[in-house]
Design a protein around this nucleic acid. Structure first.
Lengths: 151, 151
DNA sequence: CCTTACGTTTACGTTAACGTCAACTGATAT
DNA sequence: ATATCAGTTGACGTTAACGTAAACGTAAGG
């Protein structure tokens, strides 16, 4: 199971201690079945998105029927709705970072293939141009506009 | 600046120690300008996506012209291209988690508004149904199919 | 029967990303 | 001149998510 999901046995035990999974025991030995696999998939997905194990448990607790107070359920629902909002901005973040990385890769390629490779011309220019222009347009700052020329 | 970005001054100093930002000094005092603001935006965006500060520095180092070896540039480019791939799956993760959370919220609402609120009927049923069905369809397992009935 | 190998528990170690506290240093207001 | 107050520099503390090592049980193979 550990290899299957590319996590260490230690991590599985850690999740068990935290109450995130509850593998069966067959004379002492842990046995992971379909259900634990499904849970682990959800746990890892949450982790990849930056959620803490405690965050994840606030969800799993509900799935496990460990939270039955209407009060508490609604409280957590509010949290989830906030999370959904955050995930939206996270999608936007992904798009922005993807674009930044792509254009950086392109510039690296251009430089690497430049027959007359000149280190000076690689980086002096419009590195942050796009970013900066956004800020200048939005006029976000009152600060004494520091020399935007030489970045 | 700290308040503006909703980070603590300590964090700003930490990023400076790590070499991620280089605020001007005006007789000892740190002065954050347009450039540092742009860098912070990128840093925080990276953080929101789960990147470590060291990850982020591998990008900023290049923008700062601190990496000029063609060898090293191409090595990092490979890393970035891998990151771009990861970001794609992260988008998919976001969609899945968003859907899961949404349907969970809906079920909480249904339960909370149920006039004859019955805790037993809330959670016993098809909690993982969708997830499980995917796995059963994909036939991912050789393991002795543990009782998929009682989740 | 012995050992080799694997799994378990307990407990301490580790890393990243800051928090917090103490001691100090100009700049400013009174 | 003194008090105050924000800002600076170490230095140590903290939390999450594991890693790692020690000590032990047990099932299989020769």
């Amino acid at each position: 199971m550990a290899d299957m999901l590319n996590v260490t046995p230690r991590a599985l035990r850690f999740y068990e201690d935290k109450g995130l999974i509850h593998p069966q025991r067959i004379n002492g030995q842990r046995s992971y079945g379909l259900r634990e696999r499904a849970r682990m998939d959800n746990i890892l997905r949450g982790k990849r998105l930056g959620f803490s194990l405690d965050d994840i448990r606030t969800v799993l607790d509900i799935y496990d029927g460990k939270v039955l107070s209407r009060e508490e359920l609604l409280r957590r629902k509010n949290g989830f709705e906030q999370l959904i909002e955050d995930l939206k901005t996270q999608r936007d973040d992904i798009d922005i970072v993807t674009e930044n990385l792509s254009s950086l890769c392109a510039r690296i390629d251009a430089f690497a293939n430049d027959p007359a490779r000149d280190a000076a011309t690689f980086m002096n220019a419009q590195a942050y141009d796009a970013v900066l222009r956004r800020y200048l347009d939005d006029e976000l700052f009152d600060e004494p506009a520091v020399s935007a020329a030489r970045i």
